[in-house]
Write a protein that binds this DNA or RNA. Structure first.
Length: 276
DNA sequence: CTCACATGTTAAG
DNA sequence: TTAACCTGTGAGC
């Protein structure tokens, strides 16, 4: 679940239900007891996502709560007049009025001083989902790097919020091969990739899933059987190794690039097939 | 039931 | 580069 769009979606939900309200804060699991107590019965002032990181500020508390979901973390928000029973391991529970939010399995759930928040944000590249993001920052990193675009897209200090699904899909949508070095990318193509990421991820914030297939390529439009993939959305190549490419029919390949599995179509994604 | 694997990151070697 | 951590799901026996 947790690429950048998930965190922006959670941040918006937390603002909607809790911003300006006094919240009850607990750590049913017991692994965030002191932090939860620090903000208990305080008013939530802000909940903001930066890439895959989430920062929450509370009235009269100097520190912020920093959450990173990692690979397995999840956040659920439910409405019920009676407080729900705790099911499984809940690291952090917030409750106000009839609304309860439960955080499970995060990599990080901790208090950060203002200085620590600043250094966290300082090591993140621009986030396509943020209006204050400067795409020129990302372009500077990409256009001067020997590393592949595929690796750079996952480098949170170059671009914040992109994960393994959006990486594979945006590379496919722009016909970029796995090994194309950042410094060989032209500015026009980069601008198209950035704009596309922003639009795809905004759609992901709205829907809560990752869909990257253009309407003219949907199974319905192409006369094929519909197929929702393992991640809950509709995609061109992610986790489709061995299956035929949705556009050309060639087998989708997979290989470790930048430490993670990249999926791509060797026929569509060639340096001589660049379209944007 | 057990095992592999996953939309992520960090620290150790 | 590898292991470790967090948890759930789906495949296979």
């Amino acid at each position: 679940m947790p690429e950048g769009h998930t965190l922006h979606r959670v941040a918006a939900e937390l603002r909607e239900h809790f911003a300006g309200r006094v919240v009850a804060s607990t750590s049913p699991q017991g692994r965030f007891t002191a932090g939860a107590a620090r903000v208990d019965r305080r008013r939530l002032l802000a909940a903001e996502a930066w890439g895959k990181h989430l920062l929450l500020r509370f009235e009269d508390v100097a520190e912020s709560v920093h959450v990173h979901l990692g690979l397995f973390g999840g956040w659920t928000i439910t409405t019920c007049d009676e407080e729900p029973e705790v099911v499984g391991q809940v690291r952090w529970r917030l409750r106000s009025g009839a609304v309860t939010s439960d955080l499970r399995g995060p990599t990080a759930c901790e208090l950060l001083t203002p200085g620590e928040c600043a250094s966290l944000l300082a090591r993140l590249g621009p986030d396509p989902l943020r209006d204050d993001a400067d795409p020129d920052d990302a372009w500077r990193r990409v256009s001067t790097s020997r590393a592949s675009v595929a690796t750079l897209l996952m480098d949170q200090s170059a671009i914040a919020g992109v994960g393994n699904v959006y990486r594979a899909e945006v590379l496919f949508r722009h016909r970029l091969p796995p090994d194309l070095p950042g410094r060989e990318l032209d500015r026009t193509t980069w601008d198209a990739v950035w704009t596309d990421l922003r639009d795809l991820m905004r759609a992901g914030v709205r829907s809560g899933r990752i869909d990257t297939v253009r309407s003219e390529h949907t199974p319905e439009a192409m006369g094929r059987d519909p197929r929702i993939d393992a991640h809950g959305g509709e995609v061109y190549v992610y986790r489709r190794a061995g299956l035929p490419c949705m556009l050309c029919g060639n087998g989708v390949l997979t290989r470790i690039v930048g430490g993670r599995k990249l999926f791509w179509c060797p026929a569509c994604q060639r340096a001589d097939r660049l379209t944007s």
